[in-house]
Design a protein around this nucleic acid. Structure first.
Lengths: 218, 218
DNA sequence: CGAAGCCTTGATGCGCCTCAACGTACGTGG
DNA sequence: CCACGTACGTTGAGGCGCATCAAGGCTTCG
C-alpha cells in the first residue's frame, strides 16, 4: 500500500477509547467492525456454554484484532476486554472486503497474522497436552514478559495488571495452584509479585523450569 | 478463477502416491511444496523436543495441506503421515506466491481455511483446559465420525485405521484410559470396536457424554 | 509359526483440584 | 482521610481422576 493510499485508508477509521475492564466486543456478537490496537493491552477470552473461560491471547499495541471478516465469519469468536485503558482504530466490516480487493497484499499479510496465531495456539495445545502445570505456568510468565515486559531495576515487569486467576486461565489450572507456584518461586528469588503485578527476576531459571529441568539452585 | 485458468494451474501440479504409514513431509523440513489431498486420510502430528507427540488434525480428501508458504514460513510446522494409501497433487512452493498475485481470491480463500483451523484449534484448547477425559474422548469420536464416517449396518464406522494410541494423542490422555473408556462404552452399546477400527453406534448418547451430562440409560 | 504390534485389565500412587478459612490491599463514600 | 466492603491472595487438608507400572491375551503379517 502506498503512502497516500494508506492515509486514505486511515482516514476512514474511527478512533475510540475503552476504559480498563470494559468490553470491546463479545463472543457471538455480530461482527460490525475490525480493529487496530493503538495503545494498551487487550485480553481475548473464550467461554464455554457452562461459564468456564480461558484466555486465548493478549493483544499488544500495533496488532489487528477482531478480524472476523478475514476468516469469513459474521460473528466474533471471542470476547475482547481492555486489560488497561486502550485506544483503538476501527473500520466497518464491509470495508475489509473492499480493501482486500484493492490491495491484495492486505490479504496475504493477514494470512501471516492468522497463520502465526494458529501456530501459537497449536504450541499451547501441545504444551497443555504434554507438560505439567509448573512448566506451563513458567512458560506463560516468560511469554508475557517477552510480549509485554518492561525493564525495571528488579527485573522484567509485566506491564499490565494480571491476577493469579488470569494466569490460571492461560494455563488450564486453578488460581490456587498458580498462587502456590508464585509463592514458592518468590521464596526462591525467581520472581517478585504483589497484587496483580508480577516481575520476572531470573528468567533463565524460569526457562529451566519451563523445559522441565530440575532447578539445581533450589 | 476461471475454468481455463484453473486447468492451467492444475497442469502445473505433480501427482503422487503415498503408501499407508509413509511420511509426506516432516516437521522442520524445508517447505518445497504445497499439497492437495485427492484421496485418503492424513494424520498431522506435532512433536515436542523430548519425543512426545499429539495429533493436530486429520486431513480428508479435497483439503489443502502443507501450505507453509501461505503463512510466510519456509519450513513445515508439523509431520504429515498417510493414514491410508493416499493420492496427492503438489505444486512447487514458489508457485504459491505467483498464484496469489494472479488470483487474489486465492489468498482470501486461504484466509478462510486457516481461520477455520485456528477456530478448531482454539476449541480444542478450551476443551482440553476445561473438560474431563471422558468428555474429550467422546467429542473426538464424534468429530471423527463426522469427518470421516461411513454408514454401515452397525452404525457409523470411522473410515481409516485408528488405534487407542491415536485417540489418546488427539485428546491429551493415555492409550490405557482410552482403552478403558471404549471397553466400558462397548459394554453399554455406545460403540463397537476392534483392532484399529471403531464404529459409533449411539451418537446421541455419546453427545450427552461429550457435554458432560449423565447418561441415564447406563 | 513365531514375533511384533495392538489391546485389555488390574494395582498403585501422586499431581493437582476442591473445599475451606483467613489475611491483606484497594477504592469508595461518608 | 479514615472506615468499611469487596476483590484478590495465601495456605492447609483431603480426596479423586487419571497417569504410571505391570502382566498377559489376541491379531496380523512375514
Amino acid at each position: 500500500m502506498e503512502k497516500d493510499e494508506l492515509s486514505e485508508f486511515l482516514s476512514k477509521a474511527r478512533s475510540a477509547r475503552y476504559p480498563k475492564d470494559s468490553q470491546i466486543f463479545g463472543q457471538g456478537e455480530k461482527a460490525e467492525a475490525f480493529f487496530l490496537l493503538l495503545d494498551g493491552h487487550i485480553r481475548v477470552l473464550r467461554i464455554t456454554p457452562d461459564g468456564e473461560q480461558i484466555i486465548a491471547r493478549y493483544i499488544s499495541s500495533g496488532e489487528l484484532f477482531g478480524i472476523a471478516q478475514a476468516i469469513g465469519r459474521d460473528t466474533y469468536p471471542a470476547n475482547a476486554i481492555a486489560a488497561v485503558d486502550c485506544v483503538t482504530l476501527s473500520w466497518p466490516g464491509k470495508l475489509w472486503h473492499e480493501t482486500v480487493e484493492k490491495y491484495p497484499t492486505f490479504a496475504t499479510n493477514t494470512n501471516k497474522v492468522i497463520g502465526g496465531r494458529l501456530q501459537e495456539t497449536q504450541d499451547r495445545l501441545l504444551e497443555l497436552a504434554t507438560e505439567r502445570v509448573e512448566q506451563r505456568v513458567a512458560s506463560a510468565l516468560l511469554k508475557l514478559a517477552n510480549q509485554a515486559g518492561k525493564k525495571t531495576e528488579d527485573g522484567i515487569l509485566i506491564d499490565f495488571p494480571i491476577s493469579r486467576q488470569d494466569i490460571s486461565e492461560m494455563t488450564g489450572t486453578t488460581l490456587h495452584t498458580v498462587s502456590r507456584l508464585l509463592s514458592s518461586w518468590e521464596h526462591d528469588g525467581l520472581v517478585k509479585s504483589s497484587r496483580k503485578k508480577i516481575t520476572v527476576i531470573e528468567g533463565h531459571r524460569l526457562l529451566l523450569l519451563a523445559n522441565g529441568m530440575q532447578d539445581k539452585d533450589r
